[in-house]
């Protein structure tokens, strides 16, 4: 069976004042129907660019999809016409943004905005769309949806707004839902509610979810499979349990070590030293080399490929020479 959404060898470049940089370098991912794929990594690793590429929303210029394919149900979206992409956006693939504070239009009521989204893809009257919007608000757990539908975004709390965004995103029953750090801007208690809601929505609508996050806690709660990204590449990919219990790549290990645990008396939190290198300074070798405790000369010369090394039951694809050589 082919996956619902397949990204193959995707390469995205940006023209910057440092010349052309490669924001995504041969990224391959796939999600099946009803599955949740977690995409993790620090800021600047290319998670959001991946999401925007799928939606066909890479700002162009300066951005450009330089190669690869994005297949939604077998149809390649790279190079598809604007008209076709517009049809697909919202109807087949929808996106939830990071900042619920700014991703709703401030001058229209939330009900109105959801109704607009419905009318973009379905031939229904405005009244009907508005009624559907109220039902959706009810569905995403907004109390007294009928009066809330007439509220403006600034009258709602952050959690409520994110619920509205989710209602808008699922209004046309998309098959792929991309959630770009949907809870980063929210309180921890609200985060759990939003995850519950996403899980419920997935159960009801059977949508595939791509959850983009830097929060390993969110991954353990939501994801079936995980792809770890670093500097525009996927460096490790496996089932969520597998990655969380047996991370291979030193970067993935670092991310998991960074999760603070309650009850553990730790004087200082673990961290990964250094920052994600600027894309225009990426060299020949492994992008993580200068932050890696296991770096060897080969790591500076040669880019590791994403392949499974060894035949341990928990073995899974990881792009690391150290793993390949059995050093790590």
């Amino acid at each position: 069976m082919t996956a619902l959404l397949e990204i193959e060898d995707l390469r995205v470049t940006f023209n910057t004042r440092h010349g052309q940089v490669t924001a995504l370098d041969s990224v391959s991912l796939h999600v099946n129907e009803g599955e949740t794929l977690g995409v993790v990594g620090e800021s600047g690793c290319g998670k959001s660019i991946t999401a925007l590429s799928v939606m066909g929303l890479i700002p162009s210029p300066p951005g450009r999809i330089a190669g690869g394919e994005i297949r939604l149900d077998g149809e390649n979206l790279v190079g598809a016409s604007d008209k076709r992409l517009r049809r697909l956006r919202g109807a087949e693939a929808a996106m939830i943004f990071q900042e619920p504070m700014t991703s709703l239009n401030p001058v229209f009521t939330v009900g109105e905005q959801i109704a607009e989204a419905i009318m973009l893809h379905q031939k229904v009257s405005h009244d009907r769309a508005f009624r559907d919007a109220i039902e959706l608000l009810d569905r995403v757990g907004i109390p007294s949806p009928e009066s809330r539908a007439r509220d403006y975004p600034h009258q709602l709390s952050g959690g409520m707004r994110q619920r509205v965004m989710i209602a808008m995103a699922v209004s046309c029953r998309p098959r792929v839902l991309i959630a770009d750090e949907p809870t980063t801007a929210l309180d921890v208690t609200v985060q759990a509610q939003i995850f519950d809601l996403l899980n419920e929505i997935q159960r009801d609508f059977g949508a595939a979810i791509v959850l983009i996050t830097h929060d390993m806690g969110a991954i353990s709660e939501m994801a079936d499979r995980v792809a770890v990204m670093y500097a525009g590449r996927v460096i490790e990919e496996a089932s969520a349990d597998n990655v969380l219990d047996h991370p291979l790549h030193p970067y993935a290990r670092g991310l998991i070590d960074c999760i603070p645990a309650l009850g553990r008396e730790e004087t200082d939190l673990k961290e990964i030293p250094g920052v994600v290198p600027p894309l225009h300074l990426l060299g020949e070798g492994c992008a993580f080399a200068d932050r890696c405790a296991h770096c060897e000369p080969r790591c500076l010369r040669e880019k590791p490929r994403l392949v499974t090394h060894g035949n341990h039951p928990a073995a899974h694809p990881a792009a690391c020479h150290g793993v390949e050589e059995g050093r790590i």
Partner: peptide, 24 residues
């Protein structure tokens, strides 16, 4: 972001100009 969000639900350029940006 709400302009990107409008694009992400499939709004056309004309609609974004008239119904999203102009009212703001």
């Amino acid at each position: 972001e709400y302009v990107t969000a409008a694009r992400a639900i499939g709004a056309k350029n004309g609609r974004i100009i008239w119904k999203v940006i102009l009212p703001n």
